[in-house]
Design a protein around this nucleic acid. Structure first.
Lengths: 219, 219
DNA sequence: GTTTGATTTTTGATTGTTCAAAATTTTACT
DNA sequence: AGTAAAATTTTGAACAATCAAAAATCAAAC
């Protein structure tokens, strides 16, 4: 069975493949997101390639094999179901659960996961709006776009918050931009790099950079 | 911070110290309960002694230091609270939760544990009747004795089941001897090695060996 | 097209956890 | 007490995961 370290690497690669489909994932990216040196990543990738979880092309990067993608989806499923469980059942703050789930995702059995899934009613997304892969590893595809691409006048609903850092989540929470929240785009100032929007009766301004980390769907 | 392997060793030592207070725990015992060779235990004990978690006396055995006992109690607290949580909140079978908790006990943060503890109402015992150390590491002492020492005529209540194997727990469950169950001791046959008791209207016979693994309190 | 800078790979070493098997010590039995 | 059996320790080796630093390769700019 895969060690929890292997699960971390595989999950990291899946996340990056989802962000840029078809593009080989670089050693540098994996190294910096996992906090290990590039050399460590290279040797781990060789081991994973040996185990049939990735295809590794020197100097070019890695892609998950079918087996690797399957495993990664299971890890991601555990991670996101745990996050939702921590928020819904234990009443934890959504800005804290990411770090918790990073540890728990390696310790949850299929049996416990099934209980959690049933208790939550087989949800499609976690508290950040990230889609939860189903038991067979398929990921529900949501049709969403970045808030930063919105045009003035549009009515939108927050679908997903990409930045998982506790600081950013607290900010988003404070502004009432949780997944599910409705908003109207009032203005867009490219020069000032600022979006003006109305949410919950309040008017607020948000930079284009953070807005790019928030995904919305049209209402 | 202690690795999860270290937590396993320390917990194992605490359990054995509780069974035979004051007696140094042997390498053999630790090795067989953790499924590692004696040599492995010896070298680990040296490392733990170095880290100030045990006092190690060659050829004689180990005892936990105060720091070691503190850590072990925390691990045990996580283990037992998780067990109870899995049974009460997720509706799992009490014969399965031991193995689950063995993995989860290393991945639960203090924050999550506090939520679980609150949700369960700061319980004193897990589903097997094993006492749950409090947050400071103190273990509530229950006044109980083995069912095997009971005398005919006594009315007793099951307090704790020491054997944690799934098979034994299923047997105990089937006979209605779960913690909390009331029973009356009808007969005791030393020669045949058998106890006769009445529980829930039914009469049943149980060997002295298994009866020794069940702790009871007088009613 | 060469040079420069960034990325990646290699190399050699370290730490944690483990084993098998040999050597030692303790214990228990005549 | 003297030896056989059991438990423990030592030794040498392995594997997983990691690092620092040197070497190789790639990409981009001039």
């Amino acid at each position: 069975m895969a060690t929890s370290t292997v699960e971390d690497y595989i999950k990291c690669i899946l996340l990056e493949e989802q962000r840029l489909p078809g593009v080989r994932v670089s050693m540098g990216h994996v190294g910096s997101s996992l906090g290990v040196t590039p050399g460590t990543v290279t040797s781990m990738m060789k081991a994973l390639a040996n185990g049939g979880l990735v295809s590794y092309e020197p100097y070019s990067g890695v892609l998950l094999t079918r087996a690797g993608a399957q495993l990664a989806a299971h890890v991601l499923r555990r991670h996101r179901l745990v996050e939702l469980f921590l928020v819904q059942v234990l009443g934890m703050d959504w800005s804290d659960v990411h770090a918790e789930a990073d540890r728990l995702e390696h310790a949850i059995s299929d049996q416990v996961l099934a209980k959690i899934d049933a208790m939550l009613g087989s949800p499609e997304a976690d508290p950040h709006g990230d889609p939860i892969p189903d038991a067979s590893g398929r990921v529900p595809e949501l049709v969403v776009e970045s808030l930063a691409h919105g045009l003035p006048g549009e009515r939108l609903r927050v679908a997903r918050v990409l930045d998982q850092s506790a600081d950013f989540l607290r900010y988003v929470d404070q502004q009432g931009l949780r997944p599910g929240a409705q908003l109207r785009l009032l203005g867009r100032d490219e020069a000032a790099d600022v979006l003006t929007l109305e949410v919950g009766g309040e008017t607020l301004r948000i930079g284009l950079r953070p807005a790019a980390r928030i995904l919305v769907e049209r209402v």
